[in-house]
Design a protein around this nucleic acid. Structure first.
Lengths: 206, 206
DNA sequence: AGTAAATCAATACACTTGTACGGTAGTATC
DNA sequence: GATACTACCGTACAAGTGTATTGATTTACT
């Protein structure tokens, strides 16, 4: 195993501790933005010393990357949960996933604020951009798949290009989420727009 | 007049100088992001001294606000231009405006990168958020108006809710632009999605 | 018991940051 | 020419930054 994660003994809690510190980091990003993050603030928020933070992350960049992967992973898990559990119809799953991009409660609002911060920084940080893009691509692929399933089930017109439809849905939900986030429009109207778009997509009689 | 802009004598070039400095600021934001902006860097980019920058802006925040208004104003002017000139059909104008949100060339790409940076910071800066929202609202109103005109001309179904349609178009274009910006999808496919959506909107026979 | 690694804590360092302040030169108005 | 205002420049400063370093303590395994 060599370099694998230790499950016993010293270093066993290593990953847990990293996650705990990342959690504190995300809290600060949500509160004051990504640029306002200092290692000392993170340490204070996590109730550990600066030295401890340094021990678990060799540099600030590494910490940010880890935090991005961490929150990205959490999002993926929620999608997988909605996907896996029960024989939900494609449309319902699609709606669940897309609604996740609209800030309807404090939890989602916080995560989307953080995601927006990372998005902005990724424009000037290729490393971050790479990781962020990976998350986007993964979600996009899921959307394509769901639309294909809906087409197979005859719920969506077979003439439609699944990839284009997925891109449209994704961008629409993402844009709506951002608009709500900055105070332009309410979550309710955003969801209404989203549902209206889904209605159109799932109308077999054009 | 009292506090009006001087058109002769000392202070005549005041606003010009502010714009010139703001231009340098925007260049830096595009290059390294909003958080990487320092007054010294701005001064260097504008080829003036730090003292000069301080003379024209009482604080960094004031400078950022001015720059946001400045770039926002430039966008508004382009929209007005597309709106005013010629008897272009509503759909063409709509398309022009929305395509402005997709980074198809370096100029637009730069402006959208800057806009994204401001959007992210506005999440933690109420002052910025207010100004940004004003720009969003203005653009939104234009979209609503254009759709109403299209409805009056019989090019768009009268059953449609103009405000909801405008919100959808806006969010879609915005989302598409962001996706292209971070490297998820090409400008061409983004425009294709946009046009497809416009096709649907402008189909009187449902 | 001994050893080595992990886990911190504390401090120091070199920089960068926004802002404040003092001074000087130019210009318009009276 | 006195006055006032604009337009700077140069410097100084306190606060905060990421990172390096050193050392102490704990833990696990032989």
């Amino acid at each position: 195993m060599g370099k694998g994660i230790r499950r016993r003994g010293l270093g066993a809690r290593h990953e847990d501790r990293r996650r705990q510190i990342a959690e504190a980091l995300l809290t600060i990003i949500n509160r004051h933005g990504l640029d306002a993050v200092s290692l000392r603030d993170v340490a204070a928020e996590a109730e550990v010393s600066l030295g401890a933070v340094q021990h678990y992350f060799r540099s600030k960049d590494e910490m940010l990357l880890f935090a991005l992967d961490y929150i990205s992973e959490r999002g993926t898990e929620r999608v997988q949960q909605s996907l896996g559990l029960g024989g939900k119809p494609p449309r319902a799953v699609l709606r669940d996933i897309l609604a996740e991009l609209v800030p309807t409660d404090d939890q989602r609002r916080a995560e989307l604020r953080i995601a927006t911060a990372f998005t902005a920084r990724s424009l000037v940080s290729p490393k971050l951009a790479e990781h962020l893009r990976a998350g986007y691509d993964a979600l996009y692929e899921v959307l394509v798949l769901l639309i294909r399933h809906a087409q197979d089930a005859g719920e969506v017109s077979a003439d439609l290009d699944p990839e284009q439809a997925a891109a449209a849905l994704f961008a629409l939900a993402d844009g709506l989420g951002t608009h709500v986030l900055i105070g332009h429009g309410s979550p309710e109207t955003a969801l209404a727009v989203l549902d209206e778009h889904l209605d159109r997509l799932f109308s077999t009689t054009p």
